[in-house]
Computed example of a mutant assay.
Amino acid sequence: MSLIEDLQWRYATKKMNGNTVPQKKLDYILEAARLAPSSSGLQPYQVFVIANKGVQEKLKAVAWNQSQIIDASHVLVFAAWDGYSEERIDTVFNKTMDQRGLPHTTMTDYKNTIWGMYEPLGQDWQAQHAAKQAYISFGMAIAAAAEQKVDATPMEGFVPDKVDEILGLNEKGLKSVLILALGYRDEANDWLVNMKKVRTPKEEFITELS
């Protein structure tokens, strides 16, 4: 199937049946998330994969008791940096230079430019910017899930501070941004499964300037 057909197939699954997503499919989805583009290639986020039912129960309790979290095969939590720093930027660029066989000084001017822009904007702006990068990765993951015929439920309905506490994100300098539940639809009990997909018409969604 084409990507468009896959996206037409997917929907925000409201009830999952508890079946396990094969590791090969999970790995594919996670690799799509890892390969996503990000501003300056910094990838200021991580993905936490939760299959432990005890942890999923704790997450459900702080996510409006959405059943998908416990019925899912795996729950992905996208967590972004809580801010930028010279050290964090240096670490990413130095690793990149190592992989490319170049001196660490190769990108010094660019690194200084980035930090010079980001530092004055403050930590709140930085955290929001990092969160936006996580959304790009999230989008790649949900598209990959559709390609693999794995159902997915995107979630912003949770208490971030509580999720951060459960997963120990504060100690890692991270903040939870999004949750993606992965599994398989319970067709007999999901009220949305046979509903028509509705999106803004093309002529209203797209404006072409020439």
Rank of each mutant, 00 (worst) to 15 (best):
Q148M: 12
Y84G: 01
A144P: 03
A51E: 15
M195D: 11
R185K: 14
A188H: 04
A51D: 15
D124Q: 14
W9M: 06
A130Q: 05
R10C: 11
R88N: 08
K53W: 00
M16E: 12
V163G: 01
N65V: 00
R100N: 11
Q46T: 15
A32C: 11
D98M: 07
K172G: 05
Q128F: 01
D151F: 11
D27Q: 13
F138C: 02
F48M: 09
I179E: 02
F48G: 07
V47D: 04
V193W: 04
I142E: 06
Q8V: 04
V49K: 11
V75E: 04
M97K: 08
V159H: 09
A33C: 03
K15C: 12
D151N: 15
T105I: 09
S39C: 13
Y45E: 02
D82Q: 08
D164C: 02
L169Q: 04
I29Y: 00
A134T: 05
A152G: 09
P37R: 10
N189L: 08
Y84A: 00
Q23F: 01
D82K: 07
W125E: 06
T153D: 03
A141D: 04
D71S: 10
R185Y: 02
E87C: 08
K53M: 12
Y28A: 09
N170F: 00
I4V: 13
Q68A: 11
A36S: 14
I29A: 06
R88Q: 06
F158M: 10
A72R: 05
K60R: 15
M117R: 09
L167F: 01
Q46M: 08
